[in-house]
Design a protein around this nucleic acid. Sequence first.
DNA 1: GACCACTGAGACCGATCTGTCTCTTCCCTT
DNA 2: AAGGGAAGAGACAGATCGGTCTCAGTGGTC
Lengths: 220, 220
Amino acid sequence: MRATQADEILGPAPDSSAVTSPRDRLLNTANDLFYRRGIHAVGIDEVVGAAGVAKMSLYRSFPSKDELVAAYLARRSGLYWDWWDRVVARHPGKPRQQLLALTKSLRKRALRTGWRGCPFTNAACEFPEPDHPARRVAEANKRELRRRFRALAKAAGARSPARLADQLTLLFEGTYASVLTFGHRGPARALVDAAAAMIDTQLRKPDEPAVRRSQPRGVR
Amino acid sequence: MRATQADEILGPAPDSSAVTSPRDRLLNTANDLFYRRGIHAVGIDEVVGAAGVAKMSLYRSFPSKDELVAAYLARRSGLYWDWWDRVVARHPGKPRQQLLALTKSLRKRALRTGWRGCPFTNAACEFPEPDHPARRVAEANKRELRRRFRALAKAAGARSPARLADQLTLLFEGTYASVLTFGHRGPARALVDAAAAMIDTQLRKPDEPAVRRSQPRGVR
DNA sequence: GACCACTGAGACCGATCTGTCTCTTCCCTT
DNA sequence: AAGGGAAGAGACAGATCGGTCTCAGTGGTC
């Protein structure tokens, strides 16, 4: 009953206390505080206090704050691929439908209040140092994202899978980033239409007429 | 000789010292340090030291660090619109060419090493508080971006200017964000092709065949 | 030459940062 | 019942944070 279907990406609530181990409580609290408020803006004392855990318990489980951050991101990355696999599994053998389903699911997430974009991109924004443990986790997640997009684009028969993958990656990253300044009523609402246009353009034969399937009931 | 043509967005170099006022030196240094390393990661003492300025001179010009950050972003926003206007001015009366020129210029910037995406999005990432002065500047910049995209999309004759504007905003934000984790060899290279596809899809009549103009010499 | 506003230099403040150490309590196992 | 390991509580350290204050120098203006 931890990661429910309604909370596909975010993971369990931060207040699951007492019954779990200090380490789990710390990770839950770190997930909540670091994501909502930013990593630099949240101190160890606050994490420890909100988790209801002694400070020494933190340093018994993690060698440093940086490693706690990396662990928080690593767990979040696992949840992210869980979500991805769940969405993809709904359309087995139909890569085009899988790509569209991913964008639709992300769009739904982006319109929710309280969502603050991609934890990996946000962490990379806060930590420019190339060898920071948090950045390593974030970059690994992004490499995997690009790899999966390429695989799906290739399976869907895109003329240039690498390019379609990069275009979709741009749209995903744009959705993540746009909520930071525009909020949940911003351009993220255009994600599905944009992705559909990209996919159409890449899968249609060059001289084939454009079939504008999502045009009539479009947003705005 | 300050903001040269070769350095369209970034502004003057940080080491323009001595001759300028303490306030200008502080803004130059803040622009360099805050953008490269992040805002929370750079303390007042470091800014003051790198600028070669007394700490009191900072607090004589700015009431707080937050206001220095806001001033840095405000100046940067002005440089951003200077760049925009310059690019747009190259194709007077041709909004479609203007949109494409903007994406091409941004792509060129995105491929440069040392570029670390959008200072406004990055600042918004670091400061989630809704009433932070830096956030206010960042959000104003983004509102203006969206407004300008809508105006250009409308002038270009898009079927749905608001939607095309949002799609292009997504691509811009995606380009900004993607360099944070993928670096300058990441999916940002697909920006121009993606934007061209979006524009094509929106400006072509629904039953018109797709004219894939940038396909033959595409990247990858 | 006197005056004055501005600047640099640096001490200083309280708060907060990450991380360490000690001591006590509690629960589980045998 | 006894023992032991884990965890809570909190003091403590050293560094750094943003911000204030004082004082000496300096360059320009009447």
